[in-house]
Amino acid sequence: MIDKNSIIYIAGHNGMVGSAIWRNLTAKGYLNLIGASSKELDLRKQKAVRDYIRKTKPDVIIDAAAKVGGILANNNFPYQFLMENMQIQNNLINEAHLLGVEKFIFLGSSCIYPKLAPQPLKEEYLLTDSLEPTNEWYALAKITGVKACESIRKQFEKDFVSLMPTNLYGTYDNFDLNSSHVLPAMIRKFHEAKQNNNAVVVLWGTGTPMREFLFVDDMAEAVVFALENQLPDYLYNVGTGEDITINKLAAIIQKIVGHTGDIIWDDTKPDGTPRKLMDVSKMHDIGWKHQVNLEDGIQKTYNWFLENIENFKQISY
């Protein structure tokens, strides 16, 4: 059984999701959280991962580590997104299994589902059709992680579970315009344009695709829920069950930031998947539901951005 003295290793504890999980567990009184930075432990290297797990003997591993990025990064670096993510998760999953780790929580992404799957996305739609080409490399890696955890659960009856979040955002997000996702990228673009006499903001695509967004602290709460309970199935969607068009998202962010200039939509750039709405009924049925609404979450994120603006590279007004 997991208790407040259990040793919990959070892989990727310095990232947006991992740090949110760490804060949540600390607030709840968990006493033995462990983590290692990428400089201390290269998760792509099998022996290094094995030695670390042997040395620290965690009861639980939460895999919040991944090479992530938006459409641009996925398009430009397909091999790295496929191979490095498989290396990271395969090392963690396999060594956890071989070394007797009691519980493993694998975090993926809604991009594992087919591009044109029925909406909202149900867990059983996995592997029923082709993926969205702009992020298939990352998606394929995450699918192998889900299946690895499922196979261990099936063959060895171990408590390995996969949580698939929708688009996450929040404090400690990535605001680098070369690699960030749509919501933090918009926050930075609108902020810089506001500082530059409310200059025009150019956004990718048509603005018509629909997306769902979950505040990272809600994701952390879902992970802790999975930690403290033995979930009956191997795969669960984690989201709000509500979506919004990208142009409406832009309008909300523009208002919160206080930018009063024009928006131009560059429809020569790709839109990506037309719609990605998660069916979160399985998580609701077992007792978890998100708490932070979108506007409040964006306001919290923008406040954090302003407090940490000196840390962001390549920012210019």
Rank of each mutant, 00 (worst) to 15 (best):
Cys111Met: 12
Pro118Ala: 08
Gly108Leu: 03
Val17Ala: 09
Phe215Tyr: 15
Val200Pro: 07
Ala11Gly: 01
Asn196Leu: 11
Ile152Ala: 07
Ile244Phe: 02
Glu310Pro: 00
Val223Lys: 03
Ala250Thr: 06
Lys154Thr: 14
Lys189Tyr: 08
Val60Tyr: 10
Glu295Phe: 00
Phe104Arg: 08
Ile62Met: 03
Gly108Ile: 05
Phe156Asp: 11
Asn198Lys: 12
Glu136Arg: 14
Glu157Asp: 13
Asp129Leu: 08
Gly297Ile: 05
Gln87Ile: 02
Glu124Ile: 13
Thr206Met: 04
Asp267Val: 01
Glu192Leu: 15
Lys4Thr: 13
Leu168Val: 12
Leu98Gln: 14
Asp59Lys: 08
Tyr125Glu: 04
Asn229Ala: 05
Ala139Thr: 05
Asp51Gln: 15
Val201Ala: 04
Glu295Gln: 06
Ile112Ala: 04
Leu41Ile: 11
Leu249Tyr: 08
Asn76Val: 06
Ala193Asn: 08
Phe215Gly: 00
Leu306Gly: 02
Val280Arg: 00
Leu82Glu: 08
Thr26Tyr: 12
Gly239Pro: 05
Gly145His: 05
Asn24Ser: 04
Tyr236Glu: 02
Leu227Glu: 02
Val17Glu: 03
Asp176Val: 01
Gly205Ile: 08
Asp129Cys: 11
Val202Asn: 09
Tyr317Thr: 15
Tyr236Asp: 04
Gly241Asp: 04
Arg50Thr: 12
Tyr234Asn: 14
Leu41Gln: 10
Glu102Leu: 15
Asn197Glu: 08
Tyr169Pro: 02
Arg23Lys: 14
Asn197Pro: 02
Gln299Thr: 09
Asp159Lys: 09
Val201Tyr: 02
Phe175Arg: 00
Ile10Gly: 01
Gln89Thr: 09
Asn75His: 13
Phe312Met: 10
Asn196Ile: 08
Glu102Ala: 15
Glu228Tyr: 13
Asn167Trp: 07
Met16Pro: 00
Lys57Pro: 03
Leu72Trp: 10
Glu84His: 06
Leu41Glu: 09
